[in-house]
Amino acid sequence: MTDLFSLHPFVALIYFISVFTAIMFSQNPLFSVIALLGGICFSGKSKIHIRPKDFGFGLLVFLAVSMTNPLFSHNGVTVLFFINNNPVTAEAIYYGMYLAVMLLAVLLWFRSFNRVITDDKWLYLTAKISPKLSLLLSTAFRFVPYLQQQVRKIRSAQKAVGIFAGDSWMDKIKSTFNVYSALISFGIEGAVDVGASMKARGYGLKGRSNYSLFRFRLVDFAILCFILWMDIALIVLSVKADIRFVFYPAFLFPKAQASLIQTVIAFLLLCFLPFILSVKEDIKWRFLRSKI
């Protein structure tokens, strides 16, 4: 299996950083559209899924952002009409639409980021910087569901002996207060045991090593190289040629030149990389199945 989910956490992190940086600094509506489409294709293909209501939400954000911009920004030379003596310009409308698409692309990629870089990958990455912080986070991640469960237990136990079981406002406040004070003593009790258990298993000895399930495979290396290659290409090309799209005061298209086309291709490949990986997996499996 080689898709974005199964890549080494470090490679996945580099990938997301590349995509986010490229979206933010490109200043070109074509790039935002590509990023959005890439995000939609990947999410739709993988287990992240895009539901109809996500499209509804996206449309809402799009309309809200693209319509607010011309109301506040009056730059631009093409005046369409006036609202309260303020000009509404075509440039401002288009700029609003560009902002909206960029925002949606960022939101969508951020959602994928959250689903791909799970708790354990975060812990692995933090362990590289500080093993102690990583262990602390791991114990915290374990403690949260434990305390949540405890809150439920305490609440029903208190209610079932009739203490602050009424529906009044005062009762509710008092019962919440009680639950949390009980939770604190319980948490401390639990922490004593965890401490003993850690100590019993040798925590605090010198020379602690770090174990993880993630292995850096050849394919991780290959994909990392590819990502870095695209990154370097984007940086070099955008330094060489101005690919910016200027909205104000009037549209100024970047010159159609070889380096612009190359940049677009590099960005396309970068944004569609996870999608391509997933599709490749599908094809491979279909192929394997037909052999069996």
Binding site: L135, S138, T139, F141, V194, A196, G207, R208, Y211
Partner: peptide, 29 residues
Amino acid sequence: IMQNPESQIVTDTVWHELSFGLENLGVPS
């Protein structure tokens, strides 16, 4: 091994719990 199964667990995942003691001893990965 202590009485309460709940409160002896240190980490959030099963695999990490299993490796925790060995990490402390400095055993190679």
